[in-house]
Amino acid sequence: MSIQHFRVALIPFFAAFCLPVFAHPETLVKVKDAEDQLGARVGYIELDLNSGKILESFRPEERFPMMSTFKVLLCGAVLSRVDAGQEQLGRRIHYSQNDLVEYSPVTEKHLTDGMTVRELCSAAITMSDNTAANLLLTTIGGPKELTAFLHNMGDHVTRLDRWEPELNEAIPNDERDTTMPAAMATTLRKLLTGELLTLASRQQLIDWMEADKVAGPLLRSALPAGWFIADKSGAGERGSRGIIAALGPDGKPSRIVVIYTTGSQATMDERNRQIAEIGASLIKHW
Rank of each mutant, 00 (worst) to 15 (best):
S2P: 09
S2V: 08
I3D: 08
Q4C: 11
H5F: 06
F6P: 06
R7A: 10
L10M: 12
F13Q: 05
F17H: 09
F17P: 05
P20A: 05
P25W: 10
P25R: 08
T27L: 08
T27E: 03
L28M: 12
L28S: 08
V31T: 06
K32S: 12
D33L: 13
A34V: 13
A34D: 02
E35C: 05
E35H: 03
D36G: 15
L38Q: 06
G39T: 09
L47R: 03
K53Q: 12
K53V: 13
E56M: 08
R59M: 04
E61K: 13
R63Q: 09
P65G: 03
M66S: 03
M66H: 05
M66C: 08
S68G: 00
T69V: 03
T69M: 03
T69I: 04
K71S: 00
V72T: 09
L73E: 03
G76L: 05
A77V: 11
S80Q: 12
S80V: 11
R81S: 09
V82D: 05
D83S: 06
Q88L: 12
L89Y: 07
I93D: 02
I93W: 03
S96A: 12
D99P: 05
D99I: 09
V101S: 10
V106R: 07
V106Q: 10
K109Q: 14
H110Y: 11
H110A: 08
H110C: 08
D113E: 14
T116W: 02
T116I: 06
R118P: 04
L120M: 11
L120T: 04
A124C: 08
N130Q: 04
N130G: 05
A133Q: 00
L135K: 05
L136W: 00
T138Y: 12
T139S: 12
I140S: 05
G141F: 04
G141E: 06
P143A: 07
P143V: 07
K144P: 11
T147R: 11
L150M: 11
G154A: 07
T158K: 00
T158A: 05
T158Q: 01
P165M: 07
L167P: 04
N168I: 05
I171F: 13
N173S: 13
D177H: 01
D177Y: 01
D177A: 02
M180N: 13
P181E: 00
P181W: 00
M184W: 01
M184G: 02
A185K: 00
A185V: 06
R189S: 13
G194A: 11
G194W: 08
L196Y: 15
L196C: 14
L197G: 04
A200C: 13
S201A: 10
Q203S: 13
I206F: 13
W208Y: 06
M209T: 02
A211V: 08
V214E: 05
P217I: 06
R220M: 03
R220W: 02
P224C: 05
A225F: 10
A230E: 01
A230S: 06
D231I: 04
D231P: 04
A235T: 06
A235Y: 02
R241Y: 02
I243F: 05
I244G: 02
L247Q: 02
G248R: 02
P249A: 08
D250L: 12
K252G: 10
I256C: 06
I259E: 00
T261M: 15
T261K: 03
G263M: 07
S264T: 12
Q265S: 15
M268I: 10
A276G: 10
I278S: 00
S281V: 15
S281Q: 13
